[in-house]
Structures are given as C-alpha cells and as structure tokens.
Design a protein around this nucleic acid. Structure first.
Lengths: 170, 170
DNA sequence: AGCTTATAGTTTGGCCCCTAACTGTCAGCT
DNA sequence: AGCTGACAGTTAGGGGCCAAACTATAAGCT
C-alpha cells in the first residue's frame, strides 16, 4: 500500500499555523504521527519492491515465512490467518494464488474434514531459501542509518505508543 | 489495512536464535523493523476506526483534507492524486464514492475540457468541520504516552531512516 | 439418533490500491 | 489545417484487505 499520505508532509511551521485554526491540533503529536506513517510507508514500499522481484507480496511472504518455520508441522488456513492477523476469507485468497503458483499445497486433514492442511512445496521451500537472506539484508540496510542505541531507543518509543493502543484485530 | 504482520512479534530471543540459522538476520534491525510496522499498523487501525464512524476512510479523509485547505481554490483529480501520492486511476475511484455520498462535486473546467474541477460540497465542509477536531484529538491521544522530548526524538530517528530510502512513488 | 451450537473454509460483494490501455482534449509544430 | 506528442480522466482487470453469509463438518447434549 501507500497509506495514501500526502507526498510532502506539511512543515512543522504549517502545523503551528493550522493549530491556530484547529485548537485540538497538537503540532508535535501530529508531526510525529505523520512521520510515523510516512516512514513506515517508505519502509514497507522498499520491502514490497524487494519481494516483488520474487513474485511475492508482503502478505504472501508472511504466509510462506510462517510455513517455513516448522515445515513438518502443517498449518491450517485458520491458524495461518490467526497468526497473521487477517480474516480467514483473506487467507483463502492468499492461499489460492500461492497454490496456483505452486508454492504451497492444500490437502485434507484425515481426522477432521473441516480442516485443510497447508504445507510448503519444494518450490516454495527453495524460493524461501533464496529470499530470506536477501530479505534480512534489506531490513538491515533500511535500519542501518540508526546506531544500535538508536534502534533500541526507537523500539522503546514505539512500544510506549503501542501499549496505549488496542490491538487492531481480535 | 493491517499490514499482514504476525499478531505477536517474535521475541528478541527468538530473533537471536533465528540469526544462527540466517547469518544475514540482524536481530536489532529486524526487531526495530517489525516494531515500526506493528506500531504503525495499530496507529493506522485506530485512525481508521475513528474515521469509519464518520463513513470515512483514511484515503477519503486525505482527499477531503486537501480540498478543505483551500476551499476556494478548486483542485483537479490529477493534482489531488499527485499530492496524495496515488495514481489518477485510484483518485477516480475515491472521487466516485465521495461524489456519490454528496461530499464533493465534479465540474468541467471552462478553459480546458480535459480538466475536471473538484470542490467540497456544503455537506463535505460540514462533515470536515465535525471530523477534524476529533481527528486531531485522536492523534494527540495516540502520541500522548511520549513526552515532548520523546516525540522530537522519534521524529529525528524516523527522519534518519527516511533519508536513506527512495520515495515510494515518483 | 436427532438436534443444536460451533467451527472451517469458501463465496459474494465492496473498498482501495496497482498497471495498462483507452478516449477525448490541448499545445506545438509544419 | 492537419499532424504529433502529451495530458486528463476513465475503464478493465487484478491483488489484497474487509464483512457477511454460505455450505460442510464436528462436538455435545438429550
């Protein structure tokens, strides 16, 4: 996604000016909020560009990552959806295209015909073996401008915000 | 959107462990990266929940915000799309539903028949007058756990990351 | 055995994003 | 005047998300 943000964030001076018109506007908070969305949009877009070179999207990658963690332990659409924080309807769609591309395999569960077992195929495993190192190098490169102390600091600040918010999915 | 993240981020200890399997995995960078996506997802979801109470989405809100800034200066779909960082096709769809809901009005430009002028309707203006204060209060509330110094610090750290990344749209 | 409640996965329809291609219009050139 | 290239906005098709509703299956109770 882009998050549908303004391409150029308003300067802080503009926020100060707008605060005169909108008393509820808190310039420092709004600035932090907009930068958070903006930076994440850029990070996410860079991540998406890397993944798209391998015919993957962040969503598909997350599913494959989940399956790759314990390859001998099959997952179901419901457990994958729950772990990923999306609806089962969404997961059905993701699995449809992953299966079509030969990266996962669906099979019935012997003991419960409501369940479908999902496993990585050999092609899926091979793809992940190629993508994962590159993915982590890309993540490290994106975070490289921060020193180790600054990364810890960033995590601390983000956790402070996070603790104050309800989870986005049940 | 949820960003299709894992509902529970891996603990840092798990990242250390995974780093043994993936030498390119940099635990501190990966932790910061995942927290950045996670926190923004939660912030964005909270923002979306507030806006959805007013039959708005972040995208529609951004468009209305842009139109609200200079109500007497009509915009065009192309200028709105460019300012918002989305394609003209996307903007057409957003304007379709905003027009259907009576929040914006499309009219032909007298001097250039390629252009469509977009303006807020009275209903659109009234809606924005109700939503904007609430929107900024919500933003301030989400950022409230950070002190003013910490907000400035967050902005600084995010800008460091941002400067190292290409823009997500041209 | 039959009924009720719950679960799994899918389908439908919609929204928001994209790319590519289309139609209509304008600007500049000859 | 006519042509070419560029621009504006839309359409078509697709992916990724949602909610709601559906069908099929399982568990528990009587």
């Amino acid at each position: 996604m882009p998050l549908l943000l303004l391409k150029e964030l308003p300067r802080f001076e503009c926020l100060l000016e707008a605060a005169q018109r909108y008393p509820d506007l808190h310039p420092e908070s709004t600035e932090a909020f907009l930068h958070l969305l903006r930076t994440t949009d850029l990070v996410f877009a860079a991540d998406s560009r890397l993944l798209s070179q391998h015919q993957l999207s962040p969503g598909r990658f997350t599913v494959l990552m989940q399956l790759n963690r314990h390859p001998d332990l099959p997952e179901t659409p419901a457990t994958l959806a729950d772990a990923a924080g999306v609806t089962r309807a969404t997961m059905t769609g993701l699995l449809d295209t992953l299966e079509k591309d030969g990266l996962v395999r669906r099979s019935p569960a012997p003991s419960d015909r409501r369940l479908t077992l999902i496993q990585l195929t050999e092609a899926g495993t091979a793809l992940m073996n190629r993508v994962i190192p590159e993915y982590f190098r890309n993540v490290a490169a994106m975070m490289a401008p921060l020193s180790p102390e600054e990364r810890a600091q960033l995590v601390g600040l983000l956790q402070k915000i996070e603790r104050n918010l309800p989870p986005s999915v049940d």
